[in-house]
């Protein structure tokens, strides 16, 4: 029980650190000093203390969007195992619940964007749903490969314990799906090369432009939710890369922390080394990730 509460607290407290790490990596690459590592924490506190400005066009959907999104993401986070420990909540088939909770969060973010009646936000919403059309099936193909490899239908055992007991013949599939999951993670979290979180030109953005009209506590909820989503997908990848099964919690947490940090730095590295690809080319990248996952699925049939 205590470990479960502990892992919930870790998710809640550590998640906002990840964007800070990415930004620091990017700053180092471009020779800047960059914002402090804890910048997102400062931003969140500042935003929570602010009032709000609402457009007269908006309805209660606009106010409900950030709340429902964050709730969906938080509930989804309860299914994700951390450091090899079993997740706070798990049941057989929770992989589907996890994916659909992310879907719920997206659904309400998109509706809140459309509620403003602004063409910028409509544009972002349209892009968001388009990329999710390709990212979501990829995520499910990845899950199917893992179901075949581990024989489990819950994220907790799939990523936590069973992954290390997997027969060696599945190694090739695993490498392929780690790559696919990395691309899905970049797309779902609106990172370069799919989306550029740093730009302030509305025409080039997806996620940022959808939340353009939100402010105050609402924006804090959205930023916090985005960091949790990033943390969740990075945590899942960490388990695929480094199985955590030694049974020694201290060692596991050190390994886990190091892997998550490394992956975050890799994302920062990708962001520094690559440019955002043209919007109409993004589907090609996502399709490629989908096909690679499919190849992994076929290899897992052996």
């Amino acid at each position: 029980m205590l470990t479960k509460i502990g892992s919930v607290l870790v998710t809640l407290l550590i998640a906002p650190l990840l964007p800070g790490i990415i930004n620091r990596v990017k700053a180092i690459f471009s020779g800047r000093q960059g914002p402090p590592l804890l910048q997102l924490y400062f931003d969140l506190f500042k935003l929570l203390k602010k009032g709000a400005v609402y457009s007269t066009t908006t309805t209660w959907i606009f106010r409900a969007g950030p709340i429902v999104s964050l709730a969906g993401l938080l509930l989804a986070s309860l299914f994700v195992p951390l450091a090899g420990a079993s997740s706070p909540l798990s049941f057989s088939g929770d992989v589907v619940a996890f994916a659909y909770l992310l879907g719920l969060a997206r659904f309400f973010t998109v509706l809140a964007a459309l509620d403003t009646g602004s063409s910028f936000e409509g544009m972002g919403a349209s892009r968001e749903v388009t990329f999710s059309i390709l990212a979501e099936p990829t995520l499910f193909i990845i899950f199917i490969v893992l179901v075949r490899c581990t024989g489990s239908l819950s994220l907790s055992t799939m990523f936590g314990q069973a992954i290390s007991l997997m027969p060696a013949k599945f190694a090739a599939s695993l490498v392929l799906i780690v790559f696919s999951l990395f691309v899905v993670c970049l797309a779902e979290n609106s990172r370069i090369p799919v989306d550029d979180p740093a730009t302030h030109l509305e025409l080039t953005m997806i996620h940022e432009v959808m939340v353009l009209d939100h402010g105050g506590p609402d924006l804090a909820f959205i930023l916090y939710g985005a960091s949790i989503k990033l943390f969740l997908l990075v945590a899942l990848m960490a388990h695929l890369i480094l199985p955590m099964d030694s049974g020694d919690p201290v060692r596991e947490w050190i390994y886990f922390g190091a892997t998550v940090a490394t992956l975050t730095i890799v994302i920062g590295f990708v962001e520094s080394a690559m440019a955002r690809i043209r919007m109409i080319r993004v589907p090609r990248l996502l399709t490629a990730a989908c096909i690679i996952a499919l190849i992994g699925m076929i290899l897992s049939l052996r």
């Binding site: 709000a52 400005v53 457009s55 709340i67 009646g117």
Partner: peptide, 19 residues
């Protein structure tokens, strides 16, 4: 939580941000 947060803060109405 949200209601508690903004209950004592100024909440204003404006038009949608048109850049």
């Amino acid at each position: 939580l949200r209601r508690a947060l903004i209950s004592k803060r100024p909440v204003t109405q404006a038009s949608t941000w048109g850049c």
